[in-house]
Amino acid sequence: MKLKWAVLAVFFTIVTVLTGCEPLTVFDPKGPQAERQANDILLSIGIMSVVVIVVFAILIYVLVKFRASKQSEDYEPPHMEGNPWVEAICVGIPVIIVAYLSFVSVQSNYIVESAPKGYEEQEPLVVYASSSNWKWHFSYPEENIETVNYLYIPTDRALEFKLYSNGPITSFWVPQLGGQKYAMADMITTLHLAADEPGEFMGRNANFSGKGFAENAFNVTAMSQKDFDDWVKEVKETADPLSEEKYNELLKPGHLGQMTFTGTHLEFAPPPEHDHGSSDSESTEETHEGHSDSHESEENHSDHSNH
């Protein structure tokens, strides 16, 4: 009996902490995608709390009412087969809950997989985020600059991250802007994010990738478009160009501090060809340079081009 109360107390403490005064990272969204996800999580916590409370209530009632010590010595419990009405309720209510959550889940899937709400009309800022053991390289093709282990982004603008990896599978995650997505060596994945307000956020690789995984993190700074433009201008004036040699040196396993370059590695070290889930106009832009495996990539394209 004590356990039940203890569990109940702990559970409510958790819920209180989760929604409490000092929000946890995931409950402190700074962009529309993260907000949608936080809302989904809170919604499901709410509904699931009701389920848990119902189960706990029935259990406690049963344990108090029907314990052997409360019953007469010669009490013979009745033989009970299933009752269709009771079973219908036990199936029906969970079905309704699951159906509702499925509806929300499907809706959210399409929301987080497309341009962030309120930013649909904009031309997104495209950033290639690629990982190597155990660093992140951020290439800004339009601005023609590249950074290592830090990311500057403008607020109030759609961001389209093109993710891939120079090694093990990694996962690009900036929890306050939105959930993560894998970066893999043989394809590009796309993550749509946006920041509503300026600030500094934690970003990291969330998928285990070997010895240096724990430190495979980066800083994200969101600033106004004007500050961002100023920063780009400054980088172009002060940073060194990224040469192929320098880039290959950066790829070597290990940890690096934050670095800034002009030019991107995309010209001499192009990303994988297979583009996974990008908006349609761009996937045709990704060229097939006549490699022997282009047939395979084309097949995959048609597989996925319908979403």
Partner: peptide, 19 residues
């Protein structure tokens, strides 16, 4: 079990995954 249902919400799972 109910946290499993929470994880099953795929969009939200982008935040739970690998944590």
């Amino acid at each position: 079990g109910v946290t499993g249902v929470m994880l099953a919400m795929s969009a939200a799972d982008y935040q739970y995954h690998n944590t």
